[in-house]
Design a protein around this nucleic acid. Structure first.
Lengths: 249, 249
DNA sequence: CGAATAATTGACTGAGATCAACCCCCGTGG
DNA sequence: CCACGGGGGTTGATCTCAGTCAATTATTCG
């Protein structure tokens, strides 16, 4: 018997592209910032959301587009990035179901400053920025919870500035792997698998480095037995060792 | 007649350390997030603020302290930074009057993640996080405006990640100078003076570099006639040229 | 099986960090 | 008023991490 595929990832060959109705309601109710609302309120808010399916690599919006909508990931993975003139990209965030993104929070700004792209096939809920603004006005508690999320993201961004300013590539890669595993790690036989297709280039765009340098770091980690990896996937096997690299022991 | 001092900065030798009452009210009313409130509301909110004076270099809070307070700069300059193990600092923000900082927005977090230090003598208004939280609950419009400020800061932090990931030191320094001048530039004979004491090391901490490398970039700019500089001060003379460097022409 | 794309590996190069010496302001105190 | 000392700034020499270029190998899909 011969293994046909080596990827431990569950590849969604037939994308659903549409979320079921109950998934929508459950999802909205589970969003951190709608958590305090009554089921009736959530149902009312649900009315304003429209759902859209995306193929892998499909663009959701481009930097510079008028920032007219706010989005919530229902299924799949979405990446937010900015492109540099020399062709290099900077990956700002990788989003999992339940996370929001889009133009709402650059309210002064009229256009998106980043680009959103489906990393896998994805189902996305969207509202117009105006409508979401009305929801915020109507439900003050929601605004405060959104504020908390924004505060966390600001903190994460500052941490990243710190890392880029002080740490070598190897450490930045280790930190990134641990963060990804914390967010979307699934226990598998090979280890704690980061549950999404992830290339060396993606990691380079996340760490301010290059695919080659990331590859060297990854090879090292694998040689030490701390991770298992293949084409487009990585699983962590020794979190403690990685943590030590991440913290610069 | 002989020039006694070469610094074009107005040095505050006798710090006031206390803000006058009308300054307080004017300041609070002018805060972006209290802008929509009635004078009576502002006066009521004012009751909850306490004012404190700081000497230059005095610490306002340390990373790790319980995040019990939220602050507003009334007068002076405040720097927020994080320290790395190797002794290097990363300067996260330089704040001017009207800007807020502190523990409020790491609501999940119990401790400050950064350190706040008075860069000049400064007058700071403070409220307990609990009290400010109540203000937010009572005035929903305020929460939304705070949200907007947070969104701007997140965007600024992401821009910084982008710069650190893609641009050489020279460009990062140019961008930083332009941003500082936009925020606290004053027209002087020497040029558009950045109105605060600012060392090469400060700039290094802002650009993820070293004092030596910043010095080399600055020397270059001066040789080209784009800036004028001295001990702890910088004035911009050719914004267009700097803009071109900043945008990578 | 073969084409396409991801990943690895090596050799070379260069931007910038580090180390070190020196200069120059500026406030202080004789 | 001037001499002094300390901290900020400059400049040069060296070294190193990681980016670049290029060739090869591995993996997946049609």
């Amino acid at each position: 018997m011969k293994a046909r595929r080596k990827t431990p990832l569950d590849i969604q060959t037939t994308p659903p592209n549409l979320c079921t109705v109950d998934l929508r309601l459950r999802l909205l109710a589970d969003l951190p910032f709608f958590a305090g609302l009554s089921p009736a309120d959530v149902a009312a808010i649900n009315q304003h959301f429209r759902e859209v399916g995306f193929e892998p690599d499909e663009m959701i919006y481009l930097a510079g587009d008028p920032a007219a909508r706010m989005f919530v990931v229902a299924e799949g993975r979405v990446k937010l990035f900015q492109s540099a003139a020399n062709g290099r990209n900077v990956l700002l965030n990788l989003l999992a179901p339940g996370e929001f993104f889009g133009g709402l929070f650059s309210l002064g700004t009229e256009a998106y400053v980043d680009t959103a792209q489906a990393q896998t096939s994805a189902c996305i809920l969207q509202v117009s920025s105006d409508e979401f603004r009305k929801i915020l006005d109507r439900h003050p508690g929601v605004a405060i919870r959104v504020l908390e999320v924004m505060a966390q993201r600001l903190q994460a961004a500052n941490e990243r500035v710190f890392l880029l300013s002080t740490s070598p590539v190897e450490r930045r890669v280790a930190v990134t792997l641990l963060k990804l595993a914390g967010k979307m790690g699934r226990k598998r036989k090979v280890g704690l698998l980061i549950d999404m297709p992830l290339s060396r280039e993606n990691l380079a765009d996340m760490t301010g480095s290059t695919p080659e340098s990331v590859s060297r770091a990854i090879s090292q980690f694998q040689k030490e037995g701390w991770i298992a990896t293949g084409r487009m996937w990585i699983a962590l096997k020794d979190l403690v060792a990685l943590q030590e690299i991440a913290e610069g022991v």
